[in-house]
Nucleic acid binder design. Sequence first.
DNA 1: ATAATTTGCGCAAACGTTTGCATAATTCAA
DNA 2: TTGAATTATGCAAACGTTTGCGCAAATTAT
Lengths: 351, 351
Amino acid sequence: MQTFILYMPNKENNSNKINIRDIAEKTGLSISTVSRVLNNKAKEYRIGKKSQEKIRKVARELNYVPNQFAANLKSGKSNTIALIVPSLNNPFFAEISSRINTEIRKHGYITIIGESDENPEIEKKELRQLVSRNIEGLIIVPCGNQWEHIDEIHNQGIPVVCIDRYFIDLDIPFVSTDNYKGAYMAAKYFIENGHHNIVCIQGVQESNTNKLRIEGFKEAMKESGINDFNIIGDNFTFQNGYLSTQLLLKQKNRPTAIFALSNTIAMGCMKAIKEAKLDIPENISLITFDDHPYLDFLATPLSCVVQPVEDISKVAVELLYTKLYDEEQNTSKILLKPTIKIRNSVKRLMD
Amino acid sequence: MQTFILYMPNKENNSNKINIRDIAEKTGLSISTVSRVLNNKAKEYRIGKKSQEKIRKVARELNYVPNQFAANLKSGKSNTIALIVPSLNNPFFAEISSRINTEIRKHGYITIIGESDENPEIEKKELRQLVSRNIEGLIIVPCGNQWEHIDEIHNQGIPVVCIDRYFIDLDIPFVSTDNYKGAYMAAKYFIENGHHNIVCIQGVQESNTNKLRIEGFKEAMKESGINDFNIIGDNFTFQNGYLSTQLLLKQKNRPTAIFALSNTIAMGCMKAIKEAKLDIPENISLITFDDHPYLDFLATPLSCVVQPVEDISKVAVELLYTKLYDEEQNTSKILLKPTIKIRNSVKRLMD
DNA sequence: ATAATTTGCGCAAACGTTTGCATAATTCAA
DNA sequence: TTGAATTATGCAAACGTTTGCGCAAATTAT
């Protein structure tokens, strides 16, 4: 029985992806040489000028795109950084993500952004996913108080940087705003303007940023001899701001000022205040945490504590890179100074 | 000369990453078997129950995480979808990104988000980067009018879906809002409320969404016999809104209504109007394109054209997956209906 | 002319998977 | 009892790179 061997017509068109071998064949050089040239290791390995040019030319002509998966498998380098934030739908985290994303690309790396949706279980799942992609670094806004899975990454020798929220006891570097100071400044500002009856509407109590803000708030109160302040609420949501404020407004002894620990909370406050036919700052004063362009255009432009978002992002990436390159056991814990932006939502009381 | 062979002490601790071979050794089974079990191909390959259990148990104990790079290299599947948007710092795109990101993860894929910053060159660079990561699909909000690099991806057989902006002549599927209709509705609403002197402040003129909005606006005007309308501006920025409005307010024949083609433009308008000590809607009416929670809390709650962001995201992912799985040459071009949300920024004129 | 050095490059073994094709063991049929 | 069918598993070749080592040719030194 005779056997016919079938030749695949134009085999190289079989898969249109050009690889290093195709270039080697076209140039008559070896794949080693091609690899070295294309990785800019030509001088290191003393590849001749003409060979270099030939290789680069052919690579360009064939529109060669290296296969990162193969490269990573061999080299162990994934050129990938993971970023996990609670949600991109929150402008604060969206801005951070955007800045970190572009910053990281400058270094030739790529970012994979995961969202935890404030759910520790999702956070863990994301992290597993990302680890399987051999991430070389992790920047994370942890949600919740669970740190084991994050510490594990850290212990595997993968550089980790926490931003915004952090674990003070762990030796994982972080960069955040001095939340204590920010809240302190806001409270002081109220007091300087003659307010004594001040209420703070907080977010998630377990969150360490929330805790610190509360502490800063309390400290300012105590320093000024005000012992009769109030802290209510339990969530960084619109609902919480809305309901908490409704309750406040019904009180016999209505506060003269509200300190909302987030924009979402502040929006809830505004709605309740508006519905009660009251005015900011005439009837009640308001300061919020975090700035946003729209605050300028509100019925009453809102004064706020502003976090140095740009610096946080920059420093986070820098921190990551010193760990990545220098291998130094850098466990910097950095708190950046907030500022307070005065608009028009606090009334000056003179009694 | 005698040679001493040095044995590396506890070799398995050399790199703490557990791989499939470690599991094979511990279980006494082959790496093939381990691979198949861990990929849920056990029945297909008829792996015995006890072997399956043993493998899964050991994998769990050792905290095995598969190396996606190796898996992809072999299988050609990267489980990665690329998403390119102009900027995460724009709430509209941030929301889309967030939704697409979570939607895609439900399918076991991962998203890499790139930002073009409205710069076609950056867009191209991003795309190259992403292609080298063997992306299996691309969802993109193209910036600019260059489509060659996108079409090339498409021609390589990689499913591509455009969202928001698109190329009508290409056979690349897209999903967007019916921008024409949205603008038409807004204009009609002005007219129904007695406005005749209406100005539209547009964004980037080359952008096809901008073009369509302009057409819808014009159509409504013409239908109502208004031939004396005005279209100014050239950018989706605060500055553009601000400066354009300043000019408008200086005119002898001040318009009674402004249609801003984006939130950023609208914010600029508001600033100029406020500075001129004028009131919305008393002195001038305003409608903006795109909704946002904060619009409720502005000095005057802004009426707007709202795009079905959630549906856009969902449909985009669905489109991508039908192409990914069914291979059908699906080139759906989908326009979703916008709605108009009436707040309080348009005055009823009765003359 | 020979040895030493430098220059230019290729061989082949990884990296951790997946998978087509065996093969071995068991069960079943006749 | 023997062959066929079924069940359970392993071998080894890929996938596209990177890189240590080595070798030949060209150059320089002696």
